[in-house]
Every structure is written in C-alpha cells, then in structure tokens.
Amino acid sequence: MGGTRIVVGYTANDSGADALALATRLASASEALLDVVMVLPSEARNSVVPADAGYERHLKERSRRWLAEASASLGDDVAQSLHVRYAESFAEGLIAAAHEFGASLIVVGAARGGILGRSRIGSVAGELLHSSDVPVALAPAGSREVPAAQGVSRITTAIGTRPGADALLEASVALARATLAPLRLLSLVSIDLPAGMDEGLAELTSTVHADEVLLTARRALPTGIEATAEVAEGPTIEDAVRGLEWHAGEIVLVGSSRLATPHHLFLGSTAAKMLRELPVPMIVVPRTAASGATS
C-alpha cells in the first residue's frame, strides 16, 4: 500500500478526531500519504453579495485553522496533505477528493452519540455507503484513544455465503501486505430458523457450507499469503460477533451487498448487524461487476 493515499473526512469534533486517529494509524502502518479533507457547503463559494464573500473567507480561514491544529496533532510520523473542498454534501466532497487524489480509502467517524467502541452510521457515512466507489472505513467512537503506535494487529475478512468475494479478498491481501498484519478469514453462521425447520439439521448444513466457503476463499489467496480461517456461530449475527475474540488494533473488511450497483457500495444486512456489535473499525469494499455479494 506504500505510495497510495488515504482520504480522511475531518470535522472539528470527536467524530472527526476518531476518523483522523484511525486514518493516521492506517497510513502509518501502510506508509500511505494522508489527505486530510474538510468539506464546505458549495453555496458558500457561489456568493455574489460582498457580505457572503466575507462569510466564505471566514469559513475557509476557520477550516484551515482547524486543519492546521489537526495536522499539528499528527506529528511528523505520517506524510500528510491538508485540503479544503466545496461540495453539495460532505460525502460528495470526500468521494470527489478520493477521485482527485487517486485514494484507495475514505475514512470517516461514527455518528455523534454512538456507544464507545462501536460505530453508528450517521448521514455522512450512510451517504458514502450508498454512493462511494472507493472503500470506506468507519472509525468507531473512541478511536482517538487508540495510539497510532498500535498499528494494525490483524485483518479479519468477513467472507459471505455467496461466491464472488474476489474484490474483497484482493483488498484484504493488499492491506495485509502493506501493514504486515496477519489475515483471518471469517464466516458468520447465523441460524435464523424458519418455523418448523429441524434445528440440528439446519445448524449442520449451515456450518458445512461455511467451511466450504472458507476453504474456497483460502484457495483463492495468492501464494505467500497465509490466513487462518474461523467459523463464528450463534443464534444471530450479533451473538456470533460478540462471541469472537477481537484484537485492539484489528480491522474488519466486508464486501458491499448484492444490492449495490457494480463498483459501488451498499451496506448489506449482515454487515449492518456486525457493525452494531463490532468493537473495531470496519472497511466496506465495493463489489465489482463480476463479483457477487459478500454480505
């Protein structure tokens, strides 16, 4: 991942600090350039009245001051670049910046009011997860408390029960190589039984299928990439996630839903359920035209 760029959507609040902390940790671990972006409303730029022009200058100066303060907090360990951009929405501005810089990842914080250590999807993340063609990382509340030196301790890739996880595996392998982190392939077995179905038979069928999916994924890994494989079980996705071991510096990758248009994101129901319980950051990877769903 060295030589690549990461865009972080910065706001001068706790959510922005969480996003900046996660982005810094990822950039430091992968030797990527960090583009810190503040997005201002486009109407502020389209002013024709002198008073509005003064307001635009005020907004831009304040934004640059906040960016400078954020930059100073990063120290000299991470190569960084600071930007102010205008757009109709924060998400639109971040996607445009990612295209402009050729970034491989967009990082945003969870919505304010989220539970410590968990992600809650706010309007910005929600729009990104429905429109971005660039992978999106969600920083849980409290990410700012995790030191950058923590690095990336492990990458867990949630392999879905449908074939076509090529893009997700490629992104996982690239991140594992860039951060020198071990890779864990994970299959979540959620047993939401239809009425009247034999519980033992359903559990057996589901577990066998999960094992097959993991085996197929391991075989698809390039030479030299080792990965552990684990089947998580529970009566619900949330129970399965809670029952797993998570490292402090772990990152989870999931693929976008089959409902997504090719090369774009859409957070599937499995990933959304995972997100509510995950104590670590999640990266959502767009599917490709050739691939199927992974969540």
Results as ranks from 00 to 15, higher is better:
residue 73 S to W: 02
residue 99 H to C: 00
residue 138 L to T: 12
residue 255 G to Y: 04
residue 55 Y to Q: 01
residue 52 D to T: 03
residue 283 I to Y: 07
residue 150 Q to P: 05
residue 265 L to C: 02
residue 243 G to A: 09
residue 184 R to Y: 01
residue 253 L to T: 02
residue 159 I to N: 04
residue 185 L to Y: 02
residue 42 S to C: 04
residue 207 T to Q: 07
residue 100 E to I: 05
residue 140 P to E: 09
residue 265 L to I: 11
residue 68 A to M: 08
residue 255 G to A: 05
residue 171 A to F: 03
residue 181 A to Q: 06
residue 55 Y to W: 13
residue 126 G to L: 09
residue 222 P to H: 09
residue 183 L to Q: 10
residue 108 V to T: 05
residue 154 R to M: 08
residue 25 R to M: 08
residue 135 P to Q: 07
residue 184 R to G: 13
residue 279 P to D: 01
residue 163 P to H: 09
residue 234 G to V: 05
residue 82 L to W: 05
residue 179 T to R: 13
residue 266 F to M: 04
residue 150 Q to D: 02
residue 285 V to I: 15
residue 275 L to Q: 04
residue 226 E to H: 14
residue 94 L to N: 12
residue 268 G to C: 14
residue 246 W to V: 09
residue 196 G to S: 12
residue 209 H to F: 14
residue 192 D to N: 00
residue 44 A to W: 03
residue 61 E to I: 04
residue 122 G to I: 01
residue 104 S to D: 15
residue 142 G to R: 09
residue 214 L to D: 14
residue 209 H to E: 05
residue 65 R to A: 08
residue 263 H to E: 15
residue 40 L to V: 10
residue 265 L to G: 11
residue 206 S to P: 01
residue 153 S to I: 03
residue 3 G to D: 14
residue 285 V to F: 08
residue 110 A to E: 07
residue 219 R to D: 14
residue 104 S to V: 07
residue 82 L to V: 06
residue 217 A to E: 05
residue 252 V to E: 10
residue 97 A to I: 00
residue 64 R to I: 04
residue 209 H to C: 00
residue 17 A to I: 06
residue 114 G to Q: 02
residue 49 V to G: 08
residue 86 Y to C: 01
residue 22 L to K: 09
residue 133 D to K: 11
residue 281 P to E: 10
residue 49 V to M: 14
residue 256 S to D: 01
residue 186 L to I: 03
residue 9 G to V: 10
residue 293 A to K: 02
residue 174 A to N: 04
residue 94 L to R: 11
residue 163 P to D: 08
residue 178 A to L: 10
residue 223 T to W: 01
residue 198 D to R: 13
residue 33 L to V: 12
residue 47 S to A: 15
residue 113 G to N: 03
residue 144 R to N: 14
residue 195 A to K: 05
residue 278 L to F: 12
residue 52 D to L: 09
residue 62 R to E: 12
residue 246 W to E: 03
residue 235 P to A: 12
residue 123 S to D: 08
residue 1 M to K: 00
residue 141 A to R: 13
residue 273 K to M: 03
residue 157 T to L: 07
residue 292 G to T: 00
residue 273 K to I: 02
residue 77 D to K: 12
residue 39 V to R: 03
residue 82 L to M: 05
residue 127 E to H: 13
residue 145 E to C: 10
residue 191 I to G: 00
residue 229 A to M: 11
residue 262 P to I: 04
residue 9 G to N: 07
residue 16 G to F: 03
residue 22 L to I: 06
residue 264 H to T: 15
residue 225 I to P: 08
residue 253 L to D: 00
residue 178 A to K: 01
residue 62 R to V: 07
residue 109 G to L: 07
residue 225 I to G: 01
residue 43 E to G: 09
residue 23 A to N: 01
residue 165 A to M: 01
residue 270 T to P: 11
residue 7 V to H: 12
residue 292 G to N: 10
residue 30 S to T: 15
residue 125 A to N: 02
residue 220 A to Q: 06
residue 206 S to D: 11
residue 71 S to V: 06
